[in-house]
Design a binder for these strands. Structure first.
Length: 298
DNA sequence: TTCGCAATAT
DNA sequence: CATATTGCGA
């Protein structure tokens, strides 16, 4: 069956597995006998071209979204950023320097003709009431994203960890200040609550936070805003640039997280429902790790 | 202008 | 539930 997904169910995912890590769509997932046994329509198997076509549709949808965002952004400033080279795919190796400060703002946009679109479920319009407003899909704070967030927050002291800065340092394409502000707010509530009752039972509610390494360095950190490690080097060892990519909303409720058992000082628990579609061979990407960075915080 | 926060909204 | 938005006083 196909799971229904309502429009704003679009999620964002980061570090999607590479093509090699995915089960080829050209593969027949259900054995013929089994299929017929359950009266499942024979569904012609996809050919490489089918897949490619679908892929293109999906992709162009994404680009459409991006360009909407981008040209809206350019309206706001003088310098254009050549964005012809979308690195939505694996070319995520872009080594970028965040000090450029020329971040085009991500703004919503009024759109005229919502092109038919393909099966991509991306703008499952039915913009009944949504008017012509294109809403940015809700950001999903995957463990990867959250980790980045934590890293950055840990490096800036509490003093400098403000939405704007955090957002810049995280250097995640598409991430807005609001996204960060919202998350930060929640994060603060969480940490506050944790200090109050450091011992409380594991509130299953705090999935994300509960499952991350403690940002144990949330302490003070004066310094004139410059980050230095022990060598006195300026550094920003974070992943060069992740791309927050809108993920088709294949609702993935269903699975629960692992035990969270906790009570001590260090959070343990782990992966929660954030890891979409049950493919375990998901580890293929490097975004999954917690990259302990020398903290210049002290 | 941005932050921080609570109250809402979706 | 997790996020987004909004309103307001710093």
């Amino acid at each position: 069956m196909v799971e229904e997904v309502n429009d704003d169910r679009l999620l964002w995912e980061v570090g999607l597995p590479g093509a090699d890590d995915l089960t080829p769509l050209t593969l027949q997932l259900i054995p013929a006998e089994l299929a017929s046994a359950f009266r499942i329509s024979p569904e012609s198997s996809k050919t490489m071209t089918d897949v490619n076509r679908a892929s293109h549709n999906t992709f162009s949808s994404l680009q459409r979204w991006h360009s909407q965002v981008e040209d809206m952004a350019s309206m706001n400033n003088s310098n254009f950023k050549a964005f012809g080279e979308e690195r939505i795919r694996e070319e995520t190796l872009t080594e970028k320097d965040e000090t450029d400060g020329s971040d085009p703002r991500k703004i919503r946009r009024v759109e005229s003709g919502d092109t038919e679109e393909a099966d991509s479920a991306i703008c499952n319009e039915d913009d009944s009431s949504a008017k012509t407003l294109n809403k940015r899909p809700r950001l999903v704070w995957t463990p990867q994203l959250h980790t980045r967030f934590i890293e950055v927050v840990a490096h800036l002291g509490i003093k400098n960890a403000v939405p704007k800065t955090i957002m810049q340092l995280m250097n995640v394409e598409g991430l807005t200040r609001e996204n960060v502000a919202s998350h930060l707010q929640k994060y603060r509530l969480y940490t506050k609550r944790m200090q109050g009752q450091p011992n409380e039972g594991p509130s299953l509610s705090d999935h994300l936070f509960n499952s991350m390494p403690a940002p144990q360095s949330l302490r003070e950190f004066g310094e004139s805003g410059h980050l230095r490690n022990t060598n006195g080097h300026m550094e920003m060892p974070y992943q060069p640039q992740m791309v927050a990519m809108p993920m088709m909303g294949m609702a993935n409720r269903g699975h629960v997280g692992m035990p969270i058992g906790y009570g001590g000082g260090e959070p343990v628990g782990f992966h929660n429902q954030y890891n979409m579609v049950q493919h375990r061979e998901w580890s293929g990407n490097n975004f999954g790790y917690y990259h302990p960075v020398a903290s210049n915080d002290k």
